[in-house]
Amino acid sequence: MKTNAVNLTETEYLLPGNRACPGCALSLAYRHILKALEGQVIVTVPASCLTVLHGMYPVTSVNVPCVNTPFPSTGASATGLVAGLKALGKKGLTVLAIAGDGGTHDIGIQALSGAAERQEDFIYICYDNEGYMNTGNQRSGSTPLGAISGTTPILGKQQNQKDMTAIMEAHSIPYVATANASYPLDLYEKVRKAKAIEGTRFIHVFTPCPPGWGFPYSDTIKIGELAVKTGWVVLYEVEDGTFRLTSASESIARRGNLRPVRDYLREQGRFKNITEEQINELQDWVNARWSRCLDRATSL
């Protein structure tokens, strides 16, 4: 049975009153990720927005066990958890490593790549708010071309994002997927699917950040939807090498109604100084990836 808003579990593992900013897409995504894992999970988190969301000693906003780990260590920390569980004969628990784009694309890539090469048995979720948002919005390897940040002021970033999901797919792991906080049920289904698979599983979750990106707190869902409708984010999964578009990306592909990326960019303050040339460059970049996805989507 496909999960919908009616039959989704009512049990909450992320409790109200946490320290997330208003309109935080991570908060929404994390709520559904934990629901999908039904409390049978050990979480490891590097220093990031999620550490703050989890709360400050002596209280926590989650009712799942957690070990906080240094910024570069998430993949290694998860490796240790898996080994510990195995050595102690504990079965049926999922180890969830969850880190931001800075902790994944940049400082954490070595530990993640090492773990994936060893085919360590955990789910790694990268929540991508396209910059070091917890430290006040500095550029990361996932900050897009043209975006203004604390370390790319005035002119905006001059380089494209790195495609972390493609990098992880190149590790020949059994499951990689992209997801988006504005499509929580698609995310939920993907975590459920990943849970049942053995080996390293990677899910990239797009999590718009109102204060970092410069849009109203009330527009988080809209920004996430625009990202998918313009092809900025493509929702897909690759299971044992088989590529499949999912959710809204699948229907957009069927209908052929991709909107121009300009519609997405103009809603955000971080792109206020973007040039026409950069918009065209981003459109070309989005088009190229979209056509690669269409080529791979054999089921369409």
Binding site: T69, P72, S73, T79, L85, A111
Partner: peptide
């Protein structure tokens, strides 16, 4: 459970995960 990790940063991080696990 022997883990031939990819760096010493990872070895101590993995030790922490495994020890925290119990």
């Amino acid at each position: 459970e022997f883990i031939p990790v990819e760096s010493e940063h990872a070895s101590m991080s993995a030790c922490i995960g495994a020890c925290a696990a119990g």
